[in-house]
Design a protein around this nucleic acid. Structure first.
Lengths: 383, 383
DNA sequence: TGAGTTAGTAAACTCTACTAACAATTAAAG
DNA sequence: CTTTAATTGTTAGTAGAGTTTACTAACTCA
């Protein structure tokens, strides 16, 4: 059980290193290199990794046996010496399931390939919004998705609303009225596949970290029914002391009051930034004498508020990248510009700007792809 | 999708794992266990680490040869079986140099033992405040400190003001008018000892992480001439995209203006929190009709401002611990209480409170000890 | 005194990566 | 066209790290 060994290594802190752990790491290194740099020969891998050709040959033959890599035939490069045999990661021969439970009233899943391309989609409309019922729908959807795969599956990745601990237990998810739901174990039991469960914003930041510009210090803010975020610090996802890193929706912003939030406080980020709040404010703006200008004010103010909350985080962590994910028609333009501008105003000004602010390339599928990335990392050490 | 990045480990280029790396890790594990849990037998180590008694015996004999551990003789525990031979880390037989360059007009160094106790102090008053001159004083002080050691030295740790990159180069340090000073290499060349250089607040957070309550997700805010901080995220120090993590002095706080800062912006954290700013405000308070009450207001407001800046950071990272370091007479009481209270008000209220707020136990020597801890980590894998 | 228990060590085996040597194959030099 | 050099990938043998198995040493308990 390769998967279990990997988990043991990451879960237990201070575990002793066995020779086989080193081997696993080197296997990951081979997969990583092929995955990111593309097909190459064993000799080239050897030079890249600093291992001998002999060792690389051995690692590659191991990966060939497992189906993780494939031989592509001779390189057509023209030079003296024996022609090289190209080896590549098995891009079509392995697949992953990604699930996104954070959409409004629909559960989504997809079959993806190792490059994060979505090959097939499956959806389930939420018939009943809470409790065990949702869990059962998730399990059913997972079964359906696995049945659609056309190649061996590496595992399942899930992005769910709520707080998820390191063992894949959803501690609390108010939307579904979940409390301590062991989603990972349930899915693993149902499907027999290695499974990883994270908060939806955490999954999303994995996607953006892997497929985007890829700063190793970044934050992704996901704006939907609520406001959540995922952070990558020093190349690793921040989990937090209580597995609640990224939960910024109910941080008070500014020092001048604000709308009362359902959480009981005033001026929470969510009261300014969530999609429902924004839509409400925009509806009010539309009823004014100058609807366009009023709408711009609403969006600009929301952007400013987000930047006010983010500035200390960006400053303290020296983040290189801030990514917003959500409805493009709301975020693009005045809101994004306001975030960018306010952030610079509130940080020590530098040239060139130390932090780039942008929208997520693909907000629609970002959780699905991020969930898949988590599996790739865990199972292959790739991404 | 083709923009997949190379996520190989950053510690070493082409970081393939060799069997000897695993060995080194396991040696560190032994040292760590002894360092934190105290003397124990080989058999007990074996049970703790999950390695066999045979392997632990081998590791221990290796460490005995290196002088890293010592045998203390038989345990006096009364139970059946052969009596255990206690092994402990060589607490008196190895020493470390710590240096604190962040004090006002004085450079401090010390010889410390492996438990972080200060055995001997050396100081140099800064004769000329800037440039190469300071560098030379630092080098001279290091030589003096190494001469005071009474046991083999593991290395030198330095906490300096300014921004320090991962290679120990002080990129910028306005106080000393330094720019790209390769302090690590200079010290290494001068003393022949392994050397580590970090920002002073970063060094401090290492000390507090090691000797304090020890949450793996914490921030230490160091209040002195300026305001700086060091963050531990997931048990590792956050470095940031430009090695500038922790630089929060010039983040704008709140949405209601504030005093003009020397950096050109208004409402920077430093204008509220730095020791000079606080002392100025307290002097003004002393001139009012109710000096005590006015002083309390000053301190309370400063605490509130700090909490306003910290709240998004604590929330986003789900920090378990906030530690303040600086002059106790300023920080204790109204200021600390205000930080605590304001932080809770601005975060999602929970029971019990997810974050503990406190003062650093030993603000005086925190940088010296933190600098020493960095060496212990680096050389022994201990702390 | 003998049975049971625990600590530490020695020998043999496995796994990992290394060095050395070699066969296969091709380009370029003479 | 032959020779030389370059390059890839494999086989054989070796060193290091950790394991299992089996042992000795030394103690408690009855």
């Amino acid at each position: 059980m390769e998967a279990l060994r990997d988990l043991r290594r990451t879960d237990r802190t201070g575990a002793a290193t066995l020779p086989s752990d080193g081997r696993a790491h080197n296997l990951s290194l081979v997969r990583q290199t092929l995955h990111s740099a593309g097909a190459m020969s064993r000799a080239e891998l050897s030079r890249t990794l600093g291992l001998t050709r002999v060792t690389v040959s051995d690692l590659v033959s191991d990966l060939l046996d497992r189906g993780h890599v494939v031989e592509l035939g001779q390189s057509d490069e023209v030079r003296p010496g024996k022609p090289a045999i190209l080896v590549d990661i098995n891009r079509r021969g392995l697949q992953v399931i990604g699930m996104d439970l954070a959409e409004n009233s629909v559960l989504r899943a997809a079959v993806l390939d190792l490059d994060g391309n979505i090959l097939e989609r499956v959806e389930q409309t939420l018939t009943e919004g809470t409790g065990e019922h949702v869990v059962n729908q998730v399990l059913a959807l997972a079964s359906e998705a696995t049945a659609r795969a056309t190649a061996p599956l590496l595992g399942i990745g899930v992005g769910t609303p709520g707080i998820v601990n390191a063992r894949g237990v959803v501690t609390t998810a108010p939307n579904f009225d979940w409390k301590d739901v062991a989603l990972r174990d349930l899915l693993q039991e149902r499907t027999g596949l290695p499974t990883l469960v994270s908060n939806d914003a955490d999954a999303a930041v994995h996607a953006e970290h892997t497929f985007g510009a890829g700063s190793d210090d970044m934050v992704l803010v996901k704006i939907g029914r609520g406001v959540g975020s995922g952070l990558i610090v020093g190349g690793r996802r921040a989990r937090g002391a209580h597995s609640a890193a990224g939960e910024i929706g109910h941080v008070t912003v500014g020092t001048d009051g604000g709308t009362l939030c359902k959480c009981g406080k005033a001026g929470c980020l969510e009261t300014w930034m969530s999609v429902p709040s924004l839509e409400r404010s925009l509806a009010e703006a539309a009823a004014t004498s100058e609807p366009q200008a009023a709408a711009d004010v609403v969006l600009r103010e929301a952007g400013e508020r987000l930047a006010i909350a983010l500035a200390p985080v960006v400053g303290a962590l020296d983040l290189g990248e801030v990514v917003l994910s959500g409805p493009r028609e709301l975020l693009e333009g005045p809101l994004l510009n306001a975030v960018q501008q306010t952030l610079l105003e509130r940080l020590l000004r530098q040239d060139p700007s130390p932090v780039s602010v942008r929208l997520a390339a693909d907000a629609q599928d970002i959780v699905l792809r991020g969930a898949a990335v988590m599996v790739l990392w865990n199972q292959l050490g790739v991404a």
